[in-house]
Amino acid sequence: MLKFALSAALCIVAASNAFAGAEEGKAKATACVACHGPDGNSPSADFPSLAGQTSRYIYLQLKDFKEGRRKNEIMSALTTNLSKQDMRDLGDWFAAQKQKSTGFKADGAKVARGQKVAADALCTMCHLGGFSGQNEVPRVGGQHQAYIYRQLMAFKNKERTNDAGNMQSVMRSITEEDVEALSHYIANVN
């Protein structure tokens, strides 16, 4: 437990160094928190939690919404007037927030099945162990299950196409039932 507490404390020290634009991002995030939560932990599975997400992923997604590569009415409108620096600062601020549990109660059988599906699909080769993400590859561990499911299905059905083809290809041969299991497994990772 000591090790756990120590690591968490060190993270806070790290946060102040690693995210140059976090302070600026806080002021710019006022429009975001209504849906994504005051500290980036969204209370609703309608919206993803962004706390602890990688800064680079948030930046690239905002850019994709702004430039029309990812489609969502609300996000497209909100990103229209954002500058590159705004998007970087927002990324830094959300990345510096601490991810909290969504309180999701996973189905044990689905978690076990999802773990197997994840191993076969080599998810952690890009998303890393614990689905912690790196750079442009998002942190998805502990995200809202319903949100994960919707995004995976959107890739599968080619409704979301800003992934440079990687997720569309991975999801193509995964059944809907396995997507459900996978979303339980990933949502349960913390």
Binding site: G52, A95, S132
Partner: peptide, 14 residues
């Protein structure tokens, strides 16, 4: 958990 907390999102944590 410790590793994830220490590293996730923090590019080469300090």
């Amino acid at each position: 958990i410790a590793a994830a907390l220490t590293f996730a999102g923090f590019v080469g944590n300090a």
